[in-house]
């Protein structure tokens, strides 16, 4: 598959602060790349550089082979951007919003009508085409927002937190749309701080924190980095320091908070009763215990020492 989006050693500084620190990745046609990280990790800054709105401090990006700063019109012709906020014109109808995007996207006049109708059909809003956007639900606005980015038929899609604040039904609809776009050959870069979204949609994932790409690969590859281990999530009341656990258990503390302890152990079902016994013997009360398969969240925890929602 052809590489449509290429990011090389991207750095973006704001004075002393480094928002993006030597980030590099590629996204090929038909691929959904999930850029995963907490708020402030540098995801949106990376996207802004890719759109050509924000010049990088160093490094380079290519959109279908074009540099968005050297050849902005050619790069933007291949690029569709869906920002975090649904930046639609609420006082215009759905059709008018798409017509406006067609004018900006240089869609030939003769094709505007059919292209708008096709997109309205795709996002399931054909019967609401003449209604003002202000009357739409959040999910409908999200779908229209995505359609606006598609009017000029870009090959690269940048979706910045496209599923935030969307109800489950609309979420399922949008996820289906994004998957279909990838199947049609688009290269999709998706930023999210939701592990489930990343795990469900992405063929490859990059974990970003403090502007650095900490890990990258397919979901399976990343999970394998944790080895064949289970995750024990214990709720209760924990002291600042844990009593020593037998080395034979092979337990690794992933996180320790006042009310929660997470451990990675090779054989969870065997280790759980022994660990509970040791903790009880030290007077530490455990109210609830859960045994989980390792996830991207666990990996993020291991890589950064904190949870994604922190």
């Amino acid at each position: 598959m052809a590489v449509l989006l290429e990011v090389r050693e991207l750095v973006k500084r704001y004075g002393e602060r480094i928002a993006v620190d030597h980030v590099a990745f590629t996204v090929s046609a038909g691929e959904i790349y999930g850029l995963l990280g907490p708020n402030g990790a540098g995801k949106t800054t990376t996207i802004k550089v890719l759109t050509g709105l924000l010049p990088p401090t160093s490094g380079s990006v290519r959109i279908a082979g074009f540099d968005p700063f050297a050849e902005p019109l050619k790069a933007k012709a291949q690029l569709g951007w869906v920002g975090q906020e649904t930046s639609l014109y609420e006082d215009l109808t759905a059709r008018e919003n798409l017509e406006l995007a067609c004018a900006l996207g240089r869609v030939p006049r003769s094709e505007v009508r059919s292209r708008v109708a096709g997109l309205l059909e795709t996002i399931g809003l054909a019967d609401r085409a003449g209604e003002r956007v202000s009357r739409f639900s959040g999910g409908m606005k999200r779908r229209l927002h995505l359609a606006v980015a598609l009017v000029h038929r870009p090959r690269v899609l940048l979706l910045d937190e496209p599923l935030v604040g969307v109800d489950p039904q609309a979420r399922a609809h949008l996820m289906g749309l994004i998957e279909r776009l990838a199947e049609e050959g688009h290269a999709v870069l998706l930023t999210t701080h939701d592990m489930d979204d990343a795990q469900r949609l992405s063929s490859r994932v990059g974990i970003l924190d403090h502007g650095k790409l900490l890990a990258e690969g397919t979901v399976d590859e990343l999970q394998a980095r944790l080895g064949e281990r289970d995750v024990l999530r214990l709720s209760g009341s924990f002291p600042g320091e844990l009593p020593p656990l037998p080395e034979a258990l092979g337990a690794e503390t992933l996180s320790l908070r006042e009310d929660e302890l997470m451990l990675a152990v090779p054989n969870g079902s065997t280790a759980l009763p022994r660990i509970l016994g040791i903790l009880e013997g030290e007077g530490i009360s455990v109210e609830r215990a859960a045994l989980e398969r390792p996830s991207l969240e666990t990996l993020f925890l291991e890589l950064t020492g904190r949870e994604l929602r922190d």
């Binding site: 933007k76 951007w81 900006l104 000029h152």
Partner: peptide, 18 residues
């Protein structure tokens, strides 16, 4: 402020147009 201009500037048109 609501990103409508920024969004317009990501389309293949000169920024002055919108």
């Amino acid at each position: 402020i609501h990103g409508r201009l920024a969004r317009a500037w990501t389309f293949p048109s000169r920024p002055i147009l919108p």
